[in-house]
Write a protein that binds this DNA or RNA. Structure first.
Lengths: 356, 356
DNA sequence: TAAGATAAAGAGACCGGTCTCATAACATAT
DNA sequence: ATATGTTATGAGACCGGTCTCTTTATCTTA
């Protein structure tokens, strides 16, 4: 009984060596799978290791080799379907190459992101995939580079940082979705994002610190402008951070004199909140308001009507990021680039055609 | 340029010590935050460390202290909302206590689970939370205990293994849901699970290797038996592993002569698949068929009708598991126990009252 | 002012692997 | 028989921290 009371020093190569009556170096060669050892001795060592239930101490191994076979991932919020799908893609790529994954959550907060990065560097991960919360604070990321740890940005690019990035083709996605809505006869469209509304209104798109958000808004605004629609910036609304705030944003938006007839949701969480807001306002989709959401989330296909979405192929994005990072870790010579994963519009039933 | 070309040996305490003109031991005391050092020397060392951008090597630290401040988590499938919520609960508990989390996926397969456990033990995690894929193969888990690593089981208990477990109150949940359906006048109910149907039919409940699944089925069958309803085992259907298989299971089930009027889905993924199956069969919920799903997933509240669910409070389960493990790691004296997190039935609109 | 107590800094072993280099044993060539 | 090469094993340094033990400097107190 009380197994755990005796912390029972773990079995080491030295123990195995002694049991097999060989030197530590020889036992290590067998157990570590390197160097040359005769068949007879190999068997002895393996038998001894099995008898003692030897398990290598990966920590010690990492210390001397300098490689941990771990890749670190810093995401905004694991609970978000976007990230959990991405993580699966990354994990799959990692496993295929013999790497493991440590996940850390930033909660989209810069400080948490910094300490997560520090911690993972401290654990001597072989490489890092980061979803930067902001693209204007890059000291900690530059330090990663200076430390010689390969880095791949995910979902958001930072041009000033000379490093690989895997993102969706956000501008294009927004353009396609917006054009589609205009094609269906909509003339007043709004883009709703969960980004924190610092100060409230949006004045300068260029200042948006998150490239994915910025590019989508640029695409959206660009199409509106190109179509000669008035006051596009007015139709970009931020701050849909939770159900309560979303309700407020949507309510205000729809009670304005030139209320939009179609809404574009920046991600599936915002989309779900908007859907619920509309539901609670007693509005029917798409009769009263049309909507399009980003990300092919579970819920979008079972609502009435099912939601037209921009499919981001997040799993592929994650896999690509993982593969890219591993290529860097293995020093494959590659130019630094931004990999864009194309998106596609999946038409379902949440967009009405407006008569002309 | 080419920062990463020079792998640039990381800065160590020795480097900092040299720069601060003190001994390695003294620098280590300052940097490691232990022992006693004068204010003046402390400042010198801190300044040197900052100038050199020293980052402690946690690997080395773990080697000498024997503690890694990491807890390992082996889950069935991160992509499943159940697990990603649980992981958030675990992570939150961990962060509060200064621990980090490594997540490994088993894909609900025993071999993958074994190697994940081995790997995490190899990384010298301070403790382990495992969702055992099967409750009848416990060698690898027993080895964890023998290695002196604290272990907490999650979602599924294994009585033969004298170790803490955090689960939902699965039997009770199934009983409450089943009784509710019967109370609404249903007389033919089916329980549909994603568990692999080895050989097809279910013959012996006691043999089900997953305690959560078994207890729910026991609860379900128990209530049916108690209500005098015929042939309860016949109404337990396994193998709803993907949309295709679920379609087949549901189609067959509903085309039988004594087809059920209500379905109980074992988790939210199965629930979603059932919902889609019913939709594609042109059946209306709850007019044609009633259903209840486990887990308060996103999609369940936005369907028409919204789905009545058994709320499992997964976040709390995860948090509890994390806290329990940390208590074990810190050698808090506690009796080994099974912690059951109670569930509650959330009535929405997917269950019809059948006239009598 | 010398003896003892106390505080601060240094020296070096240790954790458990990897890996270089030295050595021993044996085979082949001259 | 001696020189040379090849191969298997052993000895021990090293990775970057922690931590014990020793030494040195400072402070009391008689």
């Amino acid at each position: 009984m009380e197994d755990s009371a005796h912390p029972k020093r773990a079995v080491t190569v030295a123990d195995v060596a002694k049991a097999a009556k060989v030197s530590k170096a020889t036992a290590a060669r067998v157990l570590g799978g390197y160097g040359v050892v005769s068949a007879k001795i190999t068997d002895q060592v393996i038998a001894a290791a099995a008898a003692l239930e030897y398990r290598p101490n990966e920590l010690a191994r990492s210390m001397s080799t300098g490689r941990s076979a771990i890749i670190g991932v810093v995401v905004g919020d694991i609970e978000n379907a976007f990230f959990s799908l991405a993580v699966r893609g990354i994990s799959d790529a990692a496993r295929l190459a013999g790497f493991n994954v440590i996940i850390a959550n930033s909660g989209e907060e810069l400080d948490a992101e910094k300490s997560a990065v520090d911690l993972l560097i401290g654990k001597r991960v072989d490489g890092l995939i980061v979803t930067p919360a902001r693209c204007d604070s890059i000291d900690h990321l530059q330090h990663v580079r200076r430390a010689g740890v390969p880095l791949v940005l995910f979902d958001r690019a930072i041009p000033e940082l000379d490093v690989d990035a895997v993102t969706g083709d956000d501008r294009d996605a927004a353009i396609v979705a917006t054009r589609y809505l205009i094609g269906q006869g909509h003339r007043r469209l709004a883009y709703v994002s969960a980004m924190d509304a610092e100060g409230g209104g949006l004045t300068n798109i260029g200042r948006i610190s998150n490239s994915a958000v910025r590019e989508r808004i640029e695409g959206f605004v660009g199409v509106l402008t190109e179509a000669g629609l008035p006051n596009p910036l007015h139709y970009v609304r931020l701050g849909a951070t939770d159900q309560h705030h979303t309700d407020r944003v949507i309510k205000r938006l729809l009670s304005e004199s030139a209320a939009p007839t179609a809404l574009l949701a920046s991600d599936s969480l915002v989309g779900l909140r908007i859907f619920k807001s509309l539901q609670s306002l007693g509005l029917s989709i798409p009769k009263d308001v049309s909507m399009i959401s980003f990300l092919d989330a579970d819920w979008t296909s079972v609502t009435v009507p099912p939601i037209t979405i921009v499919d981001q192929r997040v799993y592929e994005m994650g896999k690509l990021a993982g593969e890219r990072l591993i290529a860097r870790i293995e020093r494959t010579p590659l130019a630094v680039e931004r990999l864009r994963v194309s998106t596609s519009l999946v038409l379902r039933g949440s967009v009405a055609t407006i008569g002309r």
